[in-house]
Nucleic acid binder design. Structure first.
Length: 973
DNA sequence: TGGTTCACG
DNA sequence: GACGTACGTGAACCAG
């Protein structure tokens, strides 16, 4: 017998309204999805809550707040035994148990739905999917439409006009196209494909040897499963034919298993699913119990205080956790000024309105702005428009403020012009393409002239998201923007390691707002247009939103700096670094294109030779660049010993494997290694670098990302100039192509052993500190202390091993890693580590202290106060925790070194100017700075650089900088 | 798009 | 007792 659990509607709601659009939430599917998507969180009483939190966030932000939704219900499985078990007893038999910290959340999702006054439906003997199918049908028959909130592929068979699927985490609507992408057939044929292909997670057998690809092909060819089974004789491939002929019955059973029933007895009339206001007496106490503070705040102001609070149902036995973590209240969704929408964004098309905005911004004292361009390269992209946003009212109080945002289009053009932007070599911003300037735009020169006083006004703070980019664009129009704040950097100093710092992610996280995607306004793939071709109305929505979101993020994040003790990290390191990096990026470095071309030709010739030799030894032709084909040659065909497989089952062919084989005297791996090295050099460096040379300057301009690495290191892209080869002879030839301008030389200054020095400092190891103070060879000293041999006349092998251990310590040593590095047994490695800790017990103490700190606080600190969060420090997987612990040990050292060189970089431009030197800082490679120096100023510049770098921090060990000079980077380094 | 490999500190 | 492992990046290439 079916039993209904649909709650009665509250009398106050009156009559049910008929369905227009029904939302059906696949409750357990959603819970699993949210569980895996969100980091562990706990309720104040310790109960794990992440999946429920994700569920509530979705429910509020996407469903209850969406006025288009009038009917909504959550569907659940009533039990584990259904009619399908009668058809096939092994159905879903090998489902693993859910994770233990998910189990207590199952009952909570029922509570959550009840608290928000959302109907819960379940039906014994049937799965939630059958109920969903049935309600989808009922909705259609009632003349309405239906959205199923689930990412379960089994529900794809229900997609049809009026019924769509929505991924609850990605918020993507899945229509027939998505179904076709997944199953290769239209939605009505999905069950046929599933019946043939089977499903290992649900233990649906299907036809052995036939997967989704083959199944789709067969169904599309024969039209339906039944026709196919009748005409199996026509199938040419013997294996397929046999599989189908021998398993016809099993396939029919499979079809019954995967077909959803849309005729089950519905426990409640779908008209009764109408969206209802939550009852404050139920919702508020429940939210409080879960610790969802922002939601509580919001609903208290929306619904009013509870008048007769109903105590939340008793909580299940909480899972005991060693270190309960707080629910991040700030990440809950919250939308200030909910009546403010994109429709309120303004379009500035005349000078009068622009002047008004500028006056308003000047009066407000803080303005968010963002510029839109026709490319991504900040050195060349042309300015297309500017957006501005204001937040007026009490500082930082998002609830009692008024939002305003506007877009000022400047260089939008009619579509149909030649593709340009990145390909633009003239860079003049003029008549470089066929598109004509659109009407209704203030002339660029006029707008620039009006904006300049605002953007340079020392009394107006300009807030940007990755403002380095905007500063670069405006600099080329003669505007030096300042003073500035950067929400990306504020987020970085607050939350490095917790989340990334792109605007879309921050908007979602802190404002609960999904931003308009660039591809929504500009298209995607080959059809994508540059922003100047986007129509003004769309451009306004997209661009004004950027400034609007930036302003709100600033109001949300900036007040956290002081209480979370990262103000000085932001104000003395990250923010002042912006203009320094900007100058380095726009300076670029000269490369010798002729030299690169020659190298490329050399490499190409040698590669062709090697390829011939390799094919000869292998006995056949194959793609040497394909690890898959190579693995098959080496281990399946040549039957070489010692094949390892990587996690997806294919043969591993990385350098360490090939080196092992080479050491055993096999000729093929030797050639492959050489081929790999040259292919890398040619593909990644010579050829790619030539393409990156800027036509205007004849130099390459990298772009530095300030928030790419959680430790505080910079990252370099387009091109990455932080991984130019240096370790191999062939590779160094590429460095030779980085050259100085005529009359100049390159000066390279790098910190010696900076991370080990920091280790000696923070762990406070007298023996190491003294060795550094004396200027001793630190690896030799370590070897001497460990193995009890004098430094003089030491076996180089011992020094090498000590060096590997010193590095290992920095990385959070493990016996496995050290053994791998040194090519010794794990036992031996373990013994070395033991001996090291015996000699330097302070280092072991430091490592333990650091791990404890990370476990207690969820982050670690560099000596300069940079915070690095360890997201996985309490993960339930031992492997993930160990990973986080090693990262915790490494982060203060790597991050501390990053702090030091950043401090030096900030001081250097001023110091050079003060010494009347014209040297330019060009590149930073983590512990090295590269300068281009007029030949006559070499000595002075070297002295200044060394002095500033060595005094960038005062530690209990000296900082030592080694400098070199040359015509090219290889010589200087 | 994800996995593999390899360049750097 | 088994498992998966050195820390931090970005780019090219292959395969699906």
């Amino acid at each position: 017998m079916a039993k209904s659990k649909a709650p009665a509607k509250t009398p106050a709601d009156g009559e049910n309204k008929p369905i227009r659009h029904l939302y059906l939430i696949d409750g357990s599917g959603y819970l699993f999805r949210a569980y895996h998507a969100l980091p562990p969180m706990n309720r104040p009483d310790g109960t794990p809550i992440n999946a429920v939190f994700g569920f509530c966030r979705m429910l509020v932000a996407d469903l209850l707040d969406n006025p288009e939704i009038d009917h909504i219900a959550m569907i659940l499985d009533a039990g584990s035994v259904t009619f399908r078990n009668k058809i096939y007893d092994k159905y879903k038999a090998n489902r693993p148990d859910p994770p233990e910290d998910l189990i207590p959340q199952f009952p909570l999702i029922r509570e959550a739905a009840r608290a928000f006054n959302v109907t819960v439906c379940e039906l014994e003997g049937y799965e939630a999917d059958d109920l969903i199918a049935t309600y989808a049908r009922l909705a259609l028959e009632a003349g309405g439409t239906c959205t199923i909130v689930s990412s379960d592929k089994d529900l794809m068979q229900l997609v049809r006009p009026g019924v769509e699927l929505m991924d609850p985490i990605k918020k993507i609507k899945l229509g027939p196209e998505a179904v076709f992408e997944k199953f290769g057939v239209t939605p009505d044929k999905v069950v046929d494909v599933q019946a043939l292909a089977g499903d290992s997670t649900d233990n649906v057998p299907g036809a052995p040897g036939i997967g989704i690809k083959t199944a789709a092909q067969l169904i599309n060819e024969y039209g339906s499963l039944e026709t196919l089974l009748e005409r199996t004789k026509e199938i040419k491939q013997p294996k397929r034919r046999e599989s189908l002929e021998n398993n016809a019955e099993l396939i029919r059973i499979s079809k019954q298993l995967v077909s959803l029933r849309d005729d089950v007895p519905a426990p409640a009339d779908p008209d009764s699913f109408d969206k209802r206001r939550p009852d404050p007496n139920v919702l508020l106490p429940w939210l409080e119990q879960q610790g969802f503070r922002t939601l509580l705040q919001r609903f208290t102001s929306e619904l009013g205080e509870a008048t007769a609070p109903v105590a939340p149902t008793s909580a299940p036995e909480p899972v005991k956790k060693a270190e309960p973590t707080a629910v991040p209240a700030a990440s809950a969704s919250k939308k200030p000024n909910r009546d403010f929408t994109t429709a309120d964004y303004e379009l500035i098309q005349d000078v009068k309105l622009l002047d008004e905005w500028i006056a308003e911004a000047t009066r407000a004292g803080t303005v968010a702005f963002d510029c839109e361009t026709d490319g991504l390269d900040s050195n060349n992209a042309g300015l297309v428009g500017v957006s501005l946003a204001l937040l007026e009212g009490p500082w930082g109080d998002v609830n009692s403020t008024r939002r305003r945002a506007a877009y000022l289009p400047l260089m939008h053009r009619t579509p149909g012009g030649a593709v340009q932007g990145a390909l633009d070599l003239l860079g003049d911003g003029g008549d470089r393409d066929a598109g004509k300037l659109l009407d209704g735009q203030i002339p660029l020169e006029t707008a620039i002239a009006r904006l300049k006083p605002l953007l340079e006004d020392p009394a107006v703070l300009k807030v940007g998201q990755n403002i380095k980019y905007d500063m670069a664009v405006f600099r080329r129009h003669g505007i030096e923007i300042g003073p500035v704040d950067d929400t990306m950097l504020i987020s970085f100093v607050l939350d490095a390691g917790k989340n990334n710092h792109g605007m879309d992610e921050l908007a979602e996280l802190h404002l609960g707002q999904k931003t308009i995607k660039f591809s929504d306004v500009a298209g995607s793939g080959a059809k994508q247009v540059t922003f100047d071709k986007v129509p003004l109305d769309k451009a306004r929505d997209y661009a004004a939103e950027d400034a609007d979101v930036t302003m709100q993020l600033w109001a949300r994040l900036k007040p956290r700096l002081v209480p979370e003790r990262v103000t000085s990290m932001y104000e003395t390191i990250e923010r002042p670094l912006i203009p320094v990096l900007l100058s380095m990026e726009s300076a670029g470095i000269k490369v010798d294109a002729v030299k690169l071309k020659g190298l490329s030709a050399d490499f190409e010739k040698r590669l062709a030779e090697l390829e011939g030799e390799i094919h000869k030894i292998a006995g056949r032709e194959f793609n040497v660049g394909s690890p898959k084909q190579l693995g098959e040659i080496l281990f399946d065909e040549q039957k070489l010993p010692g094949g390892k497989r990587n996690k997806n089952g294919s043969w591993a062919t990385d350098a360490s494997v090939l080196e092992d084989l080479a050491a055993q005297g096999h000729p093929l791996p030797v050639k492959i290694l050489e081929h790999r090295q040259l292919a890398k050099l040619k593909g990644t460096y010579t050829d790619a670098l030539m393409r990156q040379v800027d036509a205007k300057t004849g130099r390459v301009h990298t772009s530095y990302h300030m928030t790419g690495a959680a430790t505080g290191r910079l990252a370099s892209t387009d091109p990455n100039l932080q991984n130019i080869p240096v370790r191999s002879e062939e590779g160094r030839k590429i460095r030779q192509a980085f050259i100085a301008e005529a009359g100049h030389k390159l000066l390279s200054a790098d910190y010696s052993q900076i991370e080990l020095r920091l280790l000696a400092h923070v762990a406070d190891i007298p023996a190491l500190k003294e060795a550094f103070a004396r200027g001793d060879d630190i690896h030799a000293i370590t070897a001497s202390e460990m193995f009890g041999v004098p430094v003089k006349g030491m076996d180089p092998l011992m020094r090498r091993r000590a060096k590997a251990i010193n590095f290992g310590i920095i990385y959070g040593i493990s016996a496995f890693g050290l053994a791998n590095q040194l090519g010794i047994g794990q036992q031996e490695a373990k013994e070395y580590i033991g001996r090291y800790f015996e000699r330097y017990p302070g280092i072991r103490d430091y490592m333990e202290r650091t791990k404890d700190f990370a476990r207690k606080h969820g982050y670690v600190l560099t000596p300069f106060g940079r915070k690095i969060h360890l997201r996985f420090i309490h993960d339930k997987s031992q492997g993930m925790r160990a990973f986080a612990e090693r990262a915790a040990i490494n982060a203060p050292l790597q991050g501390g070194a990053a702090d030091i060189i950043k401090r030096a970089m900030i001081r250097l431009p001023g110091a050079l100017t003060a010494a009347k030197l014209k040297a330019k800082m060009l590149l930073q490679v983590h512990d090295e700075l590269l300068f281009e120096v007029p030949e006559k100023e070499l000595d002075k510049t070297r002295d200044v650089a060394r002095k500033i770098m060595e005094s960038a921090a005062s530690l209990t060990v000296p900082l030592v900088v080694e400098a070199g000079v040359g015509q090219n980077w290889a010589e200087a380094h």
